[in-house]
């Protein structure tokens, strides 16, 4: 068994990935406050996938990594208003159990993986017909 990477090491790795822009296409994330030594609060954006109703929009999200991260999944909420199954229409909170690829959380999963899964979810044909709130509105 490989050694468990402690929370902060892991988050530093993710921070570097985000800042260096090594993250996957269409997703970006970084610390909300660079002075936050606990590295709990993160910002993220997802660029709406092409050929979807979300195309050309930039969606802002908040990610909170609790003290048990990465053993426990972070909590993820949309800031930009979005009509997407699995997203609470009142709070913008994402129900991770609705995202097939991260529903069974593993500590090897990263914030990036969640964002990529969300973006894939947005590109799903089921979402093609969903009416979307005007761009720029927030939860």
């Amino acid at each position: 068994m490989s050694a468990k990477v402690p929370r902060n090491f892991r988050l530093l790795e993710e921070l570097e990935m985000g800042e260096k822009g090594l993250s996957a296409d269409g997703c970006s994330y970084g610390l909300e406050d660079s002075d936050d030594v606990m590295m709990s609060n993160w910002n993220a954006t997802i660029l709406g996938p092409p050929h979807s109703v979300y195309e050309n929009r930039i969606y802002s999200l908040k990610i909170y990594c609790g003290s048990e991260y990465p053993d426990e999944p972070p909590s993820v909420s949309f800031i930009s208003k979005i009509n997407l199954p699995g997203v609470d229409q009142r709070t913008g909170r994402v129900d991770l159990s609705k995202l097939a690829r991260v529903a069974q959380w593993s500590r090897n999963f990263t914030m990036e993986k969640i964002l990529v899964a969300l973006r894939e979810h947005m590109a799903h044909p089921n979402c093609r017909k969903l009416p979307q709130p005007p761009e720029g509105t927030e939860f």
Binding site: G18, S28, G30, N43, T45, I58, S60, L61
Partner: peptide, 9 residues
């Protein structure tokens, strides 16, 4: 262009 850094526009 729209620029995004570290999850922020």
């Amino acid at each position: 262009p729209r620029l995004i850094y570290s999850g922020r526009v």
